[in-house]
């Protein structure tokens, strides 16, 4: 059986950017800031492309929810090897309060519409750090979930997944259809080559709205404030091991 795979692609502020809080404390400055595909989603896309290269997958559908700029993010996934993109357009206020619960409902609806067998998502987005979407999508569909995956193998029609858990690793097996969330060590994502970037421009992106899928995106939380974390006092440099140990002893730390 050849699988149809849905991959989630979130557009986030690039991981290397030092973020700034808005002066009115309503959020983080995003205008004019470099954005890219969420690093965990890049890993999810790479895994899907590898499955296609192993002939385990027949089609990869990349999805992104958000403003028009998300189409750039989808192009990145298409350049890496996804076959088609779906952009779920969410703007303005709705986008500011768009949460994993909403995205999960959208992904679940698409999974059924597109008859996919596997959904691969990043384990968390590096902006909201929620780590929820895969689990919630699996719940809505009543599919099994294999979160924080560092290895995925197809075995007797099931997926055998190695998960990164607190004390080490855990192996589970899930029946298809299933939802998997990718951890950092699942793979090393490829760079899109220029010819592939050019080819990606010709791949189709369909635009839909949450309402087309019957999903209500009204907010479930109210953000009261977003603030800078407390800054640490500047420390001191010591010259020698003895000085370091003396100071630690004086502080009562050793």
């Amino acid at each position: 059986m050849s699988m149809r795979i849905l991959v989630g692609c979130k557009r986030v502020i690039d991981y290397a950017v030092r973020i700034r809080i808005k002066p009115d404390k309503t959020g983080v400055v995003t205008e004019g800031v470099k954005h890219s595909l969420n690093p965990f989603d890049e890993i999810a896309v790479e895994e899907a492309v590898r499955m296609k290269e192993k002939k385990l997958c027949s089609e990869i559908i990349a999805v992104s929810c958000g403003p028009t700029t998300c189409q750039e993010t989808l192009r990145t996934a298409l350049a890496m090897g996804a076959d088609k993109g779906i952009h779920i357009e969410v703007d303005g206020k709705d986008y500011e309060t768009l949460q994993p619960l909403h995205v999960s409902k959208i992904l679940a609806a698409l999974a059924q519409q597109e008859k996919v067998d596997l959904i691969i998502l990043g384990k968390q987005a590096i902006d909201d750090d929620a780590n929820q979407t895969a689990q919630m999508t699996a719940a809505i569909l009543d599919w099994p979930q294999a979160t924080f995956a560092s290895k995925i193998e197809k075995e007797n029609g099931n997926l055998k997944v190695t998960r990164e858990v607190d004390g080490g690793l855990e192996n589970i097996s899930v029946k298809l259809p299933a939802v998997v969330s990718a951890d950092l060590r699942l793979n090393e994502p490829r760079y899109a080559t220029l010819p592939n970037i050019m080819k990606a421009k010709k791949k189709p992106i369909t635009v839909k709205k949450p309402s087309d899928l019957g999903v209500d995106v009204s907010s479930r939380i109210e953000v009261i404030s977003v603030e800078d974390p407390p800054t640490r006092e500047a420390g001191t440099k010591v010259e020698s091991v003895d000085e370091l140990l003396e100071k630690l002893k004086a502080l009562g730390r050793i």
């Binding site: 977003v226 800078d228 974390p229």
Partner: peptide, 11 residues
């Protein structure tokens, strides 16, 4: 949020 670089209070 943002790898501990912002603190969000929410209701």
């Amino acid at each position: 949020i943002y790898a501990g670089n912002a603190i969000q209070t929410l209701k």
